[in-house]
Computed example of a mutant assay.
Amino acid sequence: MNRIDVHHHLIPSAYRERLAARGIAEAGGRELPDWSPEGSLGVMNRAGIATAILSISTPGTAFLTDAAEAAGLARDLNDETASLVAAHPDRFGFFATLPLPDIDAAAAEACRALDDLDADGVVLLANARGTYLGEAGQEQLFSALDERSATVFIHPADLPAPAVTGIPPFATDFLLDTTRAAYLLVSNGIRRRYPNIRFILSHAGGFVPYASHRMAVAIAGESGRSPLDVLDDFSSFYFDTALSASPAALPSLLAFAEPRHVLFGSDWPFAPEAAVQYFAAGLDNYTAGDAVLGHRIERENALALFPRLGTTAPIPAPAFPDRIRGAATRTAMRAITRLIATS
């Protein structure tokens, strides 16, 4: 019961109703799953998660084209989530939703959420209605976040292009979306001009670790910078392991990222519990011979971003039925992971 999960979503009923009123019943090509605080706590108990940092997933508020309506929804979501965290301060934190692409409103809500609601950071979609993080004109928002040494969780959204029939966006497009945002944040100098912002890239950074040298050469050729300096910018991001703790992805991520910048993530409830357990088992298997590395990824690295979580009382062990269910699931998933790794 020691993991800190930085990629854990909530879907409040009022938010689900707002989406339904606009004919939105899915995100990333996947039907919106059921969610409740009790459901989150149950999965957390069975997966050994002490604390989950909650966030609203795509589409955030970007499905609303009226700026005032989007700003109002962001305020409501943040107030509701802050109340949930106040009721369970040891088990939940939250990343505040911002009403992008309206930069003025987003900056104002970031200040309110961080200063008044004690949000643990903010969640920003890689693109909001086709406007990407890192594009020109976003200085007001980044300045406010830098002044507060904010943690920024970057979550992918649908690409600003038609989906390809037969390929659900969450499976491939989300990885490209995150990579595009990371590229712009580095190539346009945001990463360097605002060094106090801690950016977390979802899903092991999309394609960033794998394609980092290729992207560094491209940026260096355009800017005249050293490719090594560009690589330093890319590796200074934080990366979560949501849906990415596999024997194929982890070696690339850990070879590239700064050792203390890899964080545990589950992606529940968009990732069903079986997937949460599968990738948690994959991480366990990969770090079985290096307990220090495993503990850093599961907890210690996150405590550097969220030190308040290090002062909370120990989380009690889950109830016996939850322990049995969780252990059985993890055992099965470890066996599957080993089979895949050796096949």
Rank of each mutant, 00 (worst) to 15 (best):
R75S: 14
P33H: 04
T81N: 04
D116C: 08
V122C: 04
G42W: 15
D102G: 01
D102A: 06
W35M: 00
P59I: 14
A47I: 15
E26R: 07
R75Q: 10
A110V: 00
P37H: 02
D76T: 14
F92R: 00
V43A: 09
T61C: 14
L41N: 04
E26N: 09
P89H: 08
A62L: 08
A87P: 09
A87E: 14
A119D: 00
C111I: 15
I56R: 12
N78R: 08
L64A: 09
T81G: 05
G29E: 03
A71C: 07
L32N: 05
R46K: 15
G39R: 11
A106W: 07
A52V: 07
P59A: 03
T97C: 03
D104Q: 06
T58P: 11
A70I: 07
P89S: 09
G48A: 06
E109N: 03
R91E: 02
I53K: 11
A27L: 08
G93W: 01
S36D: 11
V122M: 05
L100A: 02
A113L: 02
A96N: 02
E80T: 15
T51M: 11
E38W: 00
T61L: 06
S40L: 01
F95K: 00
L77M: 12
A21K: 12
E80W: 15
F63W: 07
S83W: 14
A70D: 12
A67W: 06
D90K: 03
E38S: 10
S55P: 05
A106Y: 05
A113P: 08
E31I: 11
T58L: 13
R30F: 13
A119H: 08
P89A: 09
I103G: 03
S83P: 13
R22L: 14
V122G: 03
E69Q: 14
I56M: 06
V123T: 09
A50S: 13
A82D: 03
E31H: 10
A68L: 12
L114I: 08
D104W: 04
R22G: 11
E38A: 13
T65R: 15
D118R: 10
D118A: 15
S36T: 14
N78H: 09
A47R: 06
F95I: 02
I24P: 07
D90S: 14
L117D: 04
L114D: 01
T65K: 14
R112H: 12
N78F: 13
V85Y: 14
H88S: 00
T81I: 13
R46G: 11
A71P: 10
A108P: 09
P99W: 10
A119S: 03
T58M: 13
A62K: 10
I53Y: 13
A25W: 07
E109M: 03
P99Q: 05
G28D: 00
V123F: 05
S55Q: 05
L100Q: 08
A106K: 08
L73V: 11
A27C: 09
H88W: 00
E26M: 07
E38F: 00
L84V: 04
R46I: 09
M44E: 06
T65Q: 11
G23F: 12
D76M: 15
D102S: 05
D104P: 07
D90A: 13
G42S: 15
A107H: 04
D116W: 09
